[in-house]
């Protein structure tokens, strides 16, 4: 068996395991989906209340696609924390699997899970508000989802390092990081209203470009070819953050092995 085939097979282990866990926690999945739909509806209703179609769509896209990005981030960032909580971290780390294989498996599952979850919420909201998407450029949306997913995977990998290095506080740190991304990325408002220093930070969040691109595609029907200013930062972030994430994860694993932080705690 070639190395590539073996690693792909091993990466499927993480996809299948996460799928099985999702099945076993189906009650929670239902609860989260309900919460996701209710949350997106509640936020979007603010736009309906104002009688402003553009505001309604802006809020709807923010709610739905932040949900998607949040899922990607959480699943990847929790790669370590989840196993630490289950007590399986040492078992997985001992297996003959390269770390990029593990992260690839987690990323594939996160994208598939996120797409299913987001599509469901999108359908519910479109039907609820009777939104006409005939002018939307769905191709633009798809491209930004794809490229944006890659850059968010990179950030998720970086975030996954925190629970590896900080046994007690790592999960809290990833939560703070996710909150900051929410704040600066223009999820529910234009980043133009932020203070100058926060606008500067927002330039480093892939969510800023993803949401802008998706909004222009869905609301204004703009083709992706005219949104290059949003595409190239995402490509750069993906190209930089994914290899950097894998490299940093390897360094963090080495540190954890040197200091004994893979051991089960709690």
């Amino acid at each position: 068996m070639t190395v590539v085939a073996r690693e792909l097979k091993a990466s499927f282990a993480f996809v299948e395991r996460n799928f099985n866990l999702t099945k076993r926690y189906w009650g929670w999945e239902l609860a989260w989906l309900t919460y996701g739909v209710a949350g997106a509806l509640s936020i979007t209703l603010i736009g309906a209340d104002q009688g402003d179609r553009r505001l309604l769509l802006t809020l709807m896209i923010g709610a739905i696609f932040w949900n998607y990005l949040g899922i990607l981030f959480e699943i990847l960032a929790d790669t370590i924390q989840w196993e630490r909580w289950e007590g399986t971290l040492e078992y997985t780390m001992m297996a003959p699997v390269r770390r990029y294989t593990q992260l690839l498996g987690s990323a594939v599952y996160a994208v598939v899970y996120g797409l299913v979850y987001t599509t469901f919420i999108l359908i519910v909201l479109v039907l609820f508000f009777g939104i006409d998407l005939s002018r939307a450029d769905l191709g633009t949306t798809a491209v930004f989802m794809l490229i944006g997913s890659l850059s968010f995977v990179g950030i998720g990998m970086m975030a996954a390092i925190l629970p590896l290095i900080y046994v007690e506080r790592g999960a809290q740190m990833t939560f703070v990081l996710q909150s900051l991304l929410l704040l600066v990325s223009g999820v529910y408002y234009s980043i133009d209203i932020l203070p100058g220093w926060m606008q500067l930070i927002s330039r480093f969040s892939p969510a800023t470009y993803i949401l802008d691109g998706v909004r222009r595609g869905l609301i204004d029907g703009m083709p992706v070819t005219s949104l290059w200013h949003d595409v190239w930062p995402l490509l750069v972030m993906a190209l930089v953050l994914i290899p950097l994430g894998v490299w940093a994860f390897g360094r963090a694993e080495r540190y954890a092995k040197r200091t004994g932080k893979l051991k089960r705690v709690g």
């Binding site: 073996r6 097979k9 091993a10 395991r17 099985n20 289950e86 297996a95 003959p96 089960r264």
Partner: peptide, 21 residues
């Protein structure tokens, strides 16, 4: 005996099998 406790023995063993190729 660290496992994914919500998963069955069979699911845990299949996970292990795939990790080991």
């Amino acid at each position: 005996a660290a496992f994914f406790k919500k998963l069955s023995p069979w699911e845990n063993l299949v996970y292990a099998a795939r990790l080991y190729g």
